[in-house]
Design a protein around this nucleic acid. Structure first.
Lengths: 238, 238
DNA sequence: CGTGGTGTTGAAGGAAATCAAGCCCGGTGG
DNA sequence: CCACCGGGCTTGATTTCCTTCAACACCACG
């Protein structure tokens, strides 16, 4: 399971732990683009691990505005924390065909209870995702649209690499500009102008299928990307 | 310990678990305003539980811009997740005199290993904090300065109430407008104008010591505050 | 009394939103 | 086959909001 591979970055799991984790997988499923994996307001949402493809989390306001909080890449977990809440406070939608493993939350709870190191490892994984959220807050609050966009692209490149999926480099971010504008919290028009400028600067390219990174070092320079970010596998032994 | 009281919202801990958690407390300390509890770049930052007073988390960019990500209220945990990382990616600074309990991370890890329900409870607590971060993302991305500010004040009122501290209502948010501007991601001047307008509308008041909520229902109306937010104690039994 | 940090307000400038128009392209159906 | 349609993309013009700049009041503190 891809997720287990990813957890290896933190600590080597032994066979017993890996097998225990594997018993939590109920089913594996493939769904088309635009599928809702979780819907805002759902009761007791299930937990998933993304195996292949792109998705995103969004939150809708009552008046229709939406904010995209996060993209999900292969290896990412969905709804592990949400398992503790009675209602989902956000929606998860696929952007491409997505393969995912459905996790039984009750079984997961049991497994963690008998494999404490596993619990700590999942906690680490959640902490890593939280650092991604914090970075988005910094970007939204302080960075210009250009910096923010460049930073997002580099972040996603890193996360796809860390996720352990095969097709590391040369991926396309399969977004419409409208979606991207709801990630960055800016208007579609301004999103377009910002993209065009990055294309003119030769750091990205656009096609009908999405956005491609051409010059990652350039994007790092533009966004003043912190090399430390997402690269902290340290911490105490457990 | 205040933190234990707060966890009660999720699940009743038994005596053994409460005692086990209590053994993680190394020292209790009182520090003056403007004390750094954690500094960006620190190695193996310790974990704390805030017992009294206000603090905030901030992140500095290399060029000096800063974003305040969060306020910490009594009952909040600091650095539990950070225990898994080798370096702190943000700074925590006190705004008032603060009393806190220092937690031994290694001991905490042991305690969780032998008390799995405790691990799950801490996980729930972390998940709740994550929902606060997500809400900040929504505010920064979609809400106007006025909505954002009103929303923040109501969120803090709720969290202070949930934290289990004694002085529930009628608290003062001890912020300078410069600090607040770095929370909202707007300029100090615009922060001032937004505050003045809320004062004119009779929903808050300012004094030399901080900002006071006068009309919480009014603030809820202005920010379109979701009653569900921070009020989800449900989820599966563990 | 100065001095520096904070708050307040007006005026000017700039960044992003909004409004508006046209383009490209894939899909559909006459 | 091609006309039509709709969604997404692109670009210019205008408007709005927020920032920046500037000046001054206030007050705690040495």
């Amino acid at each position: 399971m891809l997720f287990i591979e990813k957890l290896r970055r933190f600590t080597q799991l032994n066979d017993e732990e890996r097998q225990a984790l594997a018993t939590c997988v109920e089913t594996e499923k493939v769904v088309p683009p635009q599928t809702r994996l979780v819907s805002q307001g759902d009761e007791y949402p299930s937990a998933y691990v993304i195996e292949r493809g792109w998705s995103f989390r969004q939150r809708l306001l009552k008046d229709g505005r939406r904010q995209v909080m996060n993209f999900l890449v292969p290896g990412d977990a969905v709804g592990f924390a949400a398992a503790f809440f009675s209602h989902a406070d956000h929606t998860v939608i696929t952007m491409t065909e997505v393969r995912y493993a459905r996790i039984d939350p009750d079984r997961l709870m049991q497994v963690i209870a008998t494999n404490p190191r596993l619990g700590a490892t999942l906690f680490w994984s959640a902490a890593l995702e939280e650092s991604v959220l914090r970075e988005r807050i910094v970007s939204l609050g302080q960075r210009t649209a250009r910096e923010h966009m460049a930073h997002l692209f580099v972040e996603l490149a890193e996360r796809v690499r860390n996720g352990g999926a095969g097709d590391n480099d040369a991926w396309l971010l399969p977004v419409t500009q409208i979606l991207l504008s709801d990630v960055l919290g800016i208007s579609p028009v301004h999103t377009n102008r910002t993209i065009r400028r990055l294309v003119r600067d030769g750091v990205i390219e656009t096609s009908s299928r999405g956005i491609a990174l051409i010059d990652e070092p350039g994007l790092r320079r533009i966004s003043d990307f912190d090399e430390q970010f997402l690269h902290d596998d340290g911490g105490p032994e457990i």
